[in-house]
Amino acid sequence: MRSSVVVLVLGLALAIGTPVTWALTRPDATAGTTVEQAIDAPSPSAAPSPTGTVPPAAPAPGLPPVTTRDAAPTVASPVPAPVRLSLPAQGVTAPLDAVGVSPDGQMELPEDVDRVGWYRFGPVPGDEGSAVLAGHVDDREQGLGALAPLRTTEVGDVVVVTGATGAETRWQVVSRELITKQVLPLDSIFDREGPPRLVLITCGGPFIPELRSYRDNVVVVAEPLP
C-alpha cells in the first residue's frame, strides 16, 4: 500500500514536473523592451531630431533667407550599401545585399539563405531612422539560414555592420520580440526618422505547413554603441 502511494506521488510529480520544467527552461520569446519602445526611445547619445523638414514657424515679419540651386536634372549617386553583418555572440556573419520591395508589397529578401537583405529605401545603418536587415530563417532546399540564431540573441549582445567603405558600426541589442506577422509594427520598424536604430528580422514561432510559412517574425532592435 505504501509503495502505491510512493508511485502515485512520483507519477504525479513526473506528470506535472516535466511540462513545467520544459516550459520554464525553454528560451524566452522576448528579451528586453518591446520592439516599438526600443525603436521610438531616444538614444542616450543622440538627441532625437525633429520630424519633418519644416523649421519652427518664423514670426510673420521678415522673409526667410532663400537659397537657390540649379534645377537641371541630376542623377543621384547610389547610397553606399552596407556589405556585412555579424553577431559575434551567435557566430553569425553574413554578406548583405541591397534589397527593395517584392511585387506582393513585402520586403524583398535574398534567395540565398546565407545572405541577408538590407532595405535600400530606408536608412543606411547609422543614419537617422531605422535600418532594416532581414533574411530567411530557412529554406526547403538550402536548410537553415544565416539569421536562424537570431531568436537566441540576448539584450547586450553586440552586432557589427560593415559599411561600403569598410568602416564598421557597432550596435547593442536592446530588444528581441516574437511578433505575429499580422500585427508587426511595420511603420515603426521601417521608420525613416528618429534616432539611429538597427532592426534585424527573420521568421520564427510555429511553422504553419499549409501556408509553408511561419506564424511570427523574430524582431531584434539594437542601439548604436558609442
Binding site: 513585402q106 532581414a134 530567411h136 530563417v137 516574437l178 527573420t202 517574425n217
Partner: peptide
C-alpha cells in the same frame, strides 16, 4: 513601409511543442 517581411519556408527553425 513594406506590407510585411517573409522569412522561411521549411519549418526547420519552428518553435515546436514539447
Amino acid at each position: 513601409a513594406p506590407t510585411g517581411v517573409p522569412g522561411g519556408s521549411a519549418g526547420l527553425a519552428a518553435d515546436e511543442g514539447m
